[in-house]
Design a protein around this nucleic acid. Structure first.
Length: 271
DNA sequence: ATCCGAACCTGACGGC
DNA sequence: TGCCGTCAGGTTCGGA
């Protein structure tokens, strides 16, 4: 499920229930995710939870002794459930909470991660991350400077996390469509006005998606996790051969860096 | 330094 | 039905 808006939605949904609450017991059913699950996790009985925040697509859960770094990978979900909820195939981690609820991590593909550290800001996975796209630091000036001289196509370039974080495969295509920039343009050849449009599009699309995610929050506690994401209206993503909503030209699908890109060849000619 | 492909996994779907 | 190939929202890693 998770691109940045989904992770942000999960963060906002869980924070009120977790912060100030306490882990009672931990059940680990499958220790191997992208990396082995932090062994520390099994020693966290009776740990108070202090804060929950998001950085890029990582969730950072602060406990009294240190931090859990949680990543949902491609297929991970976190749900708050009643304590005795039946266990299904890919339910890898349960945190039984003092409040009586259960925080359950489910991840069929196991690309997710649960790591332990004392200071996440020093962690190797986080310390080279670029700016948050919804922060004031993400400006046209910043992005233009970062793009200078870059020979990579703009779409895969946007998805690298060392300049700006949180732009996944769906929103990369969507943002370029909205900015009327071809995904095939080289990052370094965009002019300032195109870069400015791109920054605005990225901010707008992510903010809208978060707002929509928010509208599905009320369903978050229910057991079928897949809400919100599929209800979203994409302009180009997954719309191969369907008419562009602006000019009716069929949407084209192509591969860039082993990922699917969708775009309108008429609206997105150059930049 | 930079980039591309492979790798980590399971499941869903389409074609034969 | 069933088998096979392909694809899927992410990210790191190794080798060219």
């Amino acid at each position: 499920m998770p691109e940045l808006p989904e992770v942000e939605t999960v963060c906002r949904a869980l924070a009120p229930s977790l912060v100030g609450n306490q882990i009672r017991t931990v059940v680990i059913r499958h220790t191997q995710l992208r990396w082995p699950i932090a062994s520390k996790l099994s020693e966290l009985s009776n740990e108070p939870m202090v804060s929950l925040q998001r950085r890029a697509k990582y969730l950072l859960l602060q406990l009294s002794q240190g931090w859990l770094i949680i990543h949902l990978g491609m297929s991970g979900t976190l749900r708050l459930l009643p304590a005795k909820t039946a266990v299904n195939k890919h339910d890898h981690i349960d945190l039984q909470l003092a409040c009586g609820q259960l925080l359950r991590f489910t991840d069929p593909r196991r690309f997710g991660a649960w790591l332990w550290c004392e200071d996440p800001w020093q962690h190797r996975l986080l310390q080279h991350l670029g700016v948050e796209p919804l922060s004031p630091a993400f400006t046209g000036t910043y992005l233009a400077q970062a793009a200078q001289g870059q020979r990579m196509a703009i779409k895969p370039w946007l998805m690298k996390s060392n300049v700006v974080v949180g732009i996944g495969n769906i929103y990369a295509s969507e943002a370029l469509y909205q900015a009327k920039i071809s995904p095939l343009c080289l990052a370094g050849e965009l002019d300032q006005s195109a870069i400015n449009r791109l920054v605005d599009s990225i901010r707008l699309i992510l903010a809208q998606a978060i707002a929509q995610g928010g509208s599905t929050l009320r369903d978050f506690r229910q057991t079928n996790g897949k809400l919100g994401y599929f209800t979203q209206q994409h302009e180009v993503y997954n719309r191969k051969n369907q008419p562009c909503r602006y000019c009716t030209t069929p949407i084209v699908q192509l591969r860039q860096g082993q990922r699917s890109t969708f775009y309108c060849p008429s609206c997105q000619r150059g930049w």
